[in-house]
Amino acid sequence: MDMRRLVGRNVLRIRKNKGMTQEKLAEISGFSQQYISGLEKGQRNPTVVTIYELSIALDVDYLELLKPDARSKIAKE
């Protein structure tokens, strides 16, 4: 399981479910829009602190950003 892609997919899903743009998430979180974009594409390797700060900006528990989704479970089988 590629954790970068997993976190990126979770950030993207949660952000869209909340009706938030990358620009708005960048504004709230303090990360650049370019960083958010790269993260959602699985191109960034977020630190534990980054995951925590993104969870605060998205108003979710940090574990939500680490949870495997259906695609991850299928890929493991």
Results as ranks from 00 to 15, higher is better:
M3K: 15
M3C: 15
R4H: 14
R4G: 06
R5P: 00
L6V: 12
L6S: 04
V7I: 12
G8Q: 00
R9T: 01
V11N: 11
V11L: 04
V11W: 03
L12I: 07
R13T: 09
R13W: 06
R15K: 06
R15T: 01
K16M: 05
K16P: 00
K16N: 00
N17C: 00
N17F: 00
G19T: 01
G19P: 02
G19F: 00
M20C: 04
E23R: 11
E23N: 02
K24T: 14
K24P: 09
A26P: 06
A26Y: 10
A26D: 11
I28A: 03
I28S: 03
S29K: 09
S29V: 04
G30Q: 10
F31K: 07
F31D: 01
F31G: 01
S32E: 04
S32Q: 10
S32L: 05
S32N: 04
Q33D: 08
Q33S: 08
Q34H: 11
Q34W: 01
Q34Y: 01
Y35N: 09
Y35F: 12
I36T: 00
I36A: 02
S37E: 00
G38P: 02
G38V: 01
G38T: 02
G38N: 07
L39H: 10
E40T: 09
E40L: 10
E40D: 09
K41E: 13
K41Q: 13
G42R: 13
G42H: 12
G42W: 08
G42L: 08
Q43C: 13
Q43E: 15
Q43R: 13
Q43S: 11
N45S: 15
N45Y: 07
P46M: 08
T47E: 06
T47D: 03
T47V: 05
V48M: 11
V48G: 10
V48C: 06
V49Q: 12
V49M: 10
T50C: 03
T50D: 06
T50A: 14
T50P: 04
I51E: 04
I51M: 09
E53V: 05
E53I: 02
E53D: 15
L54H: 03
L54N: 07
L54R: 07
S55M: 05
S55E: 05
S55D: 03
S55Q: 04
S55C: 14
I56A: 10
I56Q: 14
A57I: 07
A57R: 10
D59T: 11
D61A: 13
D61G: 10
Y62T: 06
Y62A: 14
L63Q: 15
L63T: 14
L63Y: 12
E64Q: 13
E64V: 04
E64M: 14
L65G: 06
L65S: 03
L66E: 13
L66S: 15
L66I: 15
K67V: 12
P68Y: 09
P68V: 07
P68I: 14
D69Y: 04
R71G: 05
S72V: 15
S72G: 14
K73T: 15
K73Y: 09
K73R: 14
K73A: 06
I74E: 12
A75M: 07
